[in-house]
């Protein structure tokens, strides 16, 4: 095992995060296009803008949040830093920097995906075909994950890659559930009663959770069971509980690398995430789902910052914990 430049660790971490983000954004857009309709059949695209805190940026460019303008804003608009095209660009830029440490397959696929997405224009965003476009974006990301799993050398690059993956996935799962929050809240009194099952169906499918859910809850489908499953099920690869468990495992793996044995990442944030992930669904719904999701996101930001301080050589800001070093280490 050899040493790894701090900058490359960061590139690997962010390459993974951007691609995970793209996949999830494609899921969210697809879901919203399919089911974000009110009782009159009109679509509501505001929640997506709120979810990403993009309202101001969006309304600087558009008067109305209709399907076409929001979809363009999130897929192809280079002026929107959160757009899929920009996330793929950034994933590819990170990969370009890291390229000598990546397999040829990973680079080739990512480069081709970038060439494809950067060549799309408005005509390709035809709403009738939008689901297919989202599927193709997701497939691109999944092909990438498969190549990473099959071809990446299992050194530090891989550890930071995985860590980026699970932090981002955890964050995006909270956002995916949050998008249904506005529909859920006014009906708090209806918890446990039959609801518009089709919408929850779609939410489960968007998290690739439908079949798993049916195995655990063959008959029931309530806001509590559905959001509880997506957030807390230990075997669902997109659940918060699953992602947090993976984070803990990966951080443990850092200790098995001779080059990193003397570096200690503070794990208070992971512990808090574990506590959050161990809550009961009914507790969370009763205490405010949105607040809970917010708290998970805040802890993920804190964890990212600690990783930056400990491994990427980011400067410590006032009041932040410094990387803890055990004696004998060479880091300053």
């Amino acid at each position: 095992m050899s040493s790894l430049l701090a900058r490359f660790a960061e590139n690997s971490f962010w390459m993974a995060r951007y691609l995970e983000r793209v996949e999830n954004l494609a899921r969210i857009l697809d879901v919203n296009e399919t089911f974000a309709r009110d009782s009159h059949g009109a679509q509501d695209w505001l929640p997506i803008l709120r979810l990403h805190s993009d309202e101001e940026r969006f309304f600087d460019l558009h008067n109305e949040a209709d399907a076409e303008s929001v979809v363009h804003f999130y897929v192809l608009d280079r002026r929107n830093p959160n757009a899929i095209v920009n996330a793929i660009f950034l994933a590819r830029e990170n990969a370009r920097t890291l390229r000598h440490l990546l397999s040829l397959e990973i680079w080739l696929q990512l480069n081709i995906m970038w060439n494809w997405i950067s060549g799309l224009d408005n005509r390709d965003l035809n709403l009738a075909d939008f689901s297919r476009l989202c599927a193709r974006i997701k497939e691109g990301c999944q092909l990438h994950s498969g190549l990473a799993e099959h071809t990446m050398y299992r050194d530090q690059v891989w550890l930071f890659y995985q860590l980026g993956c699970f932090i981002e996935r955890c964050d995006q799962t909270t956002r995916l559930v949050d998008i249904k929050y506005h529909a859920l809240l006014p009906r708090l009194q209806d918890v446990g009663t039959p609801i518009d099952v089709s919408q929850w169906n779609v939410l489960l499918r968007s998290a690739a959770a439908y079949h798993g859910y049916r195995r655990v809850f063959p008959r029931q489908m309530t806001p509590t069971t559905v959001s509880g499953f997506i957030l807390f099920d230990p075997y669902l690869p997109r659940s918060v509980a699953f992602c947090v468990r993976e984070m803990r495992r990966i951080i443990g793996d850092f200790q098995s690398h001779a080059e990193l044995r003397h570096v200690v990442l503070p794990t208070d944030t992971v512990s808090r995430l574990e506590e959050l992930a161990s809550r009961q669904p009914w507790q969370v719904i009763a205490g405010g789902l949105h607040e809970f999701l917010d708290q998970v996101q805040i802890e993920l930001i804190a964890l990212t910052r600690q990783i930056g301080l400990t491994f990427f050589g980011h400067p410590a800001e006032v009041g932040e914990p410094l990387a803890v070093l055990v004696p004998g280490g060479t880091a300053a």
Binding site: S3, F160, E259, G313
Partner: peptide, 18 residues
């Protein structure tokens, strides 16, 4: 990624300067 310390060149890695 490089720095000079104590008359030597080091690179900044995840595990500190090498």
């Amino acid at each position: 990624d490089l720095l000079v310390m104590d008359g030597q060149v080091f690179m900044k890695t995840t595990g500190g300067p090498i």
